[in-house]
Amino acid sequence: MPAGYPHQNSVVFMLETDICGLRLENPTILASGILGNVGSSLRRVARAGAGAVVTKSIGKQAREGYKNPTVIKIEQGYLNAIGLANPGVDDFGEEIKTAKEGGVPVIGSIFGFSVREFVSVAGKMEDHGVDALELNLSCPNVGKAGAFFSTTEELTYEVVKAVKDSVSIPVIAKLTANTGDIVAIAKACERAGCDAVTAINTLKAMKIDIVAGMPVLGNKIGGLSGPCIKPVAVASVYEIVKETGLPVIGCGGVTTGEDAVEFLMAGARAVQIGVGVADRGIGIFRKVAGEIEEFMKDHGYRSLEELIGAAQG
């Protein structure tokens, strides 16, 4: 337990959670793509109080991604178009090793442009020592006319099944709400033997600067994060929990303990925090954990289990 943790003993007890076999001291997890491409940075976030950390989405080869601007603030949120920039899986072992010194579970986020690529990167990440995998399915399957894995049940099933069959660590699928029916996609994950899902990834979005007369992001189109996507994310979590037996990690717009409680009440077993780091700093994990605990005490909840799914009725 790091020094200076608020309400020392009780926090550990009250806020403990588990998700697909991973034990978390508190339910806050660093979301993929946030400070996750360098081991020393992941370790720093772990030591700052995150219950677990997810790496940047790692692929087969190094990618520089899109040109800047890659991240901009807009009303009620942030837009990003990083373009899957990452140093490539082969060189990432050293970073994972450093990240693990943080003492919390390290979840390796991966992507691929084909099922084979996913499987190959998954195996290497497992060898690097990650505690679980998170599949970033929001990327195009180049072989199948560029359809996103995350938007069709067949592709989702195929890739989740292939990765599940090839590794022995838990596999989490990260889903997008940019699809006709996120519940159907979650069910495909469940059929494929997926251990948990994260909901949701960013929502497709654009910002046009009217003085310059053009989109601001280098890639023009990007993904929306932050408080403005929270209601969409909460609804996704609620429906997936209701319709499947999968453990769910909520993601999208968690900035305060109250936001986290909303996700937990919808049925999430943990929450991920992304751009909240920009608004409240790296200390956000400890702050949110403390705020969840405070809420629980004020409202008579004795354990996280009592809170999880409380709004499902």
């Binding site: 491409n37 991240v71 990003n80 700093g281």
Partner: peptide
């Protein structure tokens, strides 16, 4: 990349 401490490019 971001300039606001979230992307991790500059650590």
């Amino acid at each position: 990349k971001c300039g606001i401490g979230i992307c991790g490019a500059c650590v």
